[in-house]
Design a protein around this nucleic acid. Sequence first.
DNA 1: TAGACTCAG
DNA 2: GATTCTGAGTCTA
Length: 528
Amino acid sequence: MEGEDEDHEFLFNTSADQSFNKHERVIIHIDIDCFYAQVEMILNPSLRGKPLGIKQKNIVVTCNYEARALGVEKLMTIKSALEKCPSLILANGEDLKKYREMSEKIYQVLQSYSLFVEKLGFDENFIDVTHKVVKCPEVPQVITGHTFQDSDGICACGCTERLAQGSFIAQKMRDRLRDELGITSCAGIAFNKLLAKLIGTTHKPNQQTTLLSTSSLSLIKSLKHPRNIPGIGSAINRKLEALGIDTIEKLQSAEIFKLTEALGAKIANQIQQLSFGIDNSHVKITDRPKSIGAEDGFTPIRSEVEVQKKLTCLLDRVLELVEKDGRKPSQLKLTVRKLHPSSHSVRESRQTTIEYATETGSSTHQGPGGEKQKVKLMTTLKNLFEKIIDCDVSWQVTLLGISFSGFPSSNSASPVKNSINKYFHLKASSSRSEEPQPPAKRGRFDESVLQELPPDIRQEVLQDMQNQLPSSDAQKPTDFNCPKGIDPLVFYELPMEIREELLAEERMKKQTIKRKPNNLLQYFRKAS
DNA sequence: TAGACTCAG
DNA sequence: GATTCTGAGTCTA
């Protein structure tokens, strides 16, 4: 009877639901300490030890710990930051290129430990290491770093041992980020994403904390206010306050129909679960971006000439990113922030389908996108602008944004470059022509294929894939991300394309050495 | 599918 | 509370 129930659940629930009941998963959350500031200090070491703020427009978006100690806070205006701390050094952080690049390096280091890495912004990552933990029981059973445990109870399901192994892996990850990239970070280790993220913030900077399952409720309650739960933003919070819900306990005991009335069933259920520390969402492997864009805010402009100037700059910036990405977008969106006479502003956007001409193979290449292409896109943007703004009456605009989307799905667009991808691309039709393909940016694959597998097969595939990755042993820190015989510091200075080439060569070499027949391939072939 | 809205860092 | 800039996701029409 019980077995039947379990089977039933097994068919309809996600693996995450299954795992939750026994705290089966081991999730690591890595948060880079004051990310933008660290990048600036790496690029310019003379900034170290001095109070440093990163500015965007008239705002200090983040700052280093020296500045924080002197009273500078995130999102402070430059004026008040300088009042607080006259010695504050300001670095311009409006161009995100350097941060994007470092973020990508971090992702690659983390992905050499587990395929399941999910990016959250530039400076945070979730890593599911469950399959690594159950497969290496010889790792020390002592928790590395801090432990959050405020009760004597020990869970009997074995999660404490698994989390201890997770904390060991987290330490290795952080050591590598420090040694290879010069980046310090915090880590939280727990049995779900929500708790891993929350626990990681309890010891900062450059430390890590593991949450034992018996203490998850007290961690959640220590947040005091529902707004502090990730997933509850300002809009949801406003509605909760309207219901008189301003503590975690009130949210826990709120009647679900009242929450549903205010927020809809989905959000209502979700946030009430979160208030108990329950989060069944799985670590979703970060795919290539679905949209690529840029926006710029400014003091009000009132003429079409000014708009055209701004859009030209923006378009150049975005086209550079799109060209670097290599995929061909089919949608273009323009966002405009209008300033109303009543002094409140509203965002409006319009989008349209476009014909994007790739320059690859063209003899008339004239820089990113080509001039002809740019003129055409500018015309499209002008049309979109006129759909939003009636130029016959007076208007003021304080922000313009351009975003490309509608990229071909990863299965058909990006070449299958590494062995891991090969497994997953077998699901898709492989009858594509041999047209020139854009460079692959990262080893990504269709995770849904994996999720569809029976658990035993999934485990086997995971293990198999993990075996194909170079070891994550701390003794060989540069194995995966840097080909043998190349100084990692030199390697990371190389352009992305060159690095991809070198890594691809390295992989090819390894495959030819140890490729063995694999009957799992048959499984995928049948499935496709 | 377009567009608004909400969330995140 | 919103401010920066970027991107994902959901909901409605």
